[in-house]
Amino acid sequence: MSEIIMRLWRGDANGGSFQEYRVPAQEGEVVLDVVHRIQATQAGDLAVRWNCKAGKCGSCSAEVNGKPRLMCMTRMAELPLDQPITIAPMRTFPIMKDLVTDVRFNFEVAKRVPPFAPPPRQPDGTYRMFQEDIDRAQEFHKCIECFLCQDVCHVIRDHEENKARYAGPRFFVRFAELEMHPLDTNDRRLLLKERMGLGMCNITKCCTEVCPEEIHITDNAIIPLKERAVDATYDPLAFIIRKIARRKRPLPAEEAQASAIVTTPLSELADGHGDAKKAKAKA
């Protein structure tokens, strides 16, 4: 039986290094299986986060031979087994131990996404949506929050200082989901441009390449958001049409809210729509 050489990152915030483990090759295994075998037979203190082993919980994100991937969805057979297989923790997030990273950055950003804000219910007490409107956003619901897109995004992967002003691909997907929701009344375009770092993304599509759910993050979420920001700020034709339209009707509620959102401190945006209204009232 042939032998596989695995190089696993071992260490914590105080330092670390790759350690080599040799295990017999077994047919049909994924990377996470081999890591578990190492944990069971050679390194009982190896820290690795996992849960479903079916590519649906998004827990076992790591960098296999330098590529951000889910360990449970990476077959050993697709790797070059004649060379050592390198497994490192996600580079973008601080290390906790071995292959486990602290992904709280994402949870902090999530708090700053102004939530869904539906209009008042219809007279019969219901909301109505149509299939064609649901279909478009369905893709975004597949996100399992593995944060591989956040990990691979060079805006924060290679420039730590940008974390304070950049939401990242996962949250652009969330923003797109809300912006394309037929019942949502919030307008997050200026917030995206001014505070969430939409302009920092240079659409090199790495987020799309690594997404295990095959969400077209760049084409269907980020670029449509960039185009919406252009609608709001850079398009001369849209500007003229807006000017003409405003003469005929009062400023739509969502556009009025946009300015309030942009001028509201991030700390107050956690509650989103409601807080934006309060901030506007205060002003």
């Binding site: 990152w9 260490g11 915030a13 105080n14 670390g16 290094s17 790759f18 960098e63 490192a88 923790p89 996600m90 580079r91 973008t92 997030f93 601080p94 290390i95 071995d98 292959l99 990273t101 602290d102 709280r104 950055f105 902090e108 708090k111 700053r112 730590e160 200082e161 974390k163 304070a164 401190p265 991030l266 700390s267 107050e268 956690a270 509650d271 807080d275």
Partner: peptide, 25 residues
């Protein structure tokens, strides 16, 4: 070993450190 402190969300009493030491070589 860089660290970035996030703007503090409402209700949080201590700042959350978003940076920290990264793993890997």
């Amino acid at each position: 070993a860089q660290s970035v402190t996030a703007a503090q969300p409402a209700g949080h009493e201590t700042p959350v450190i978003l940076g920290g030491v990264r793993g890997g070589p």
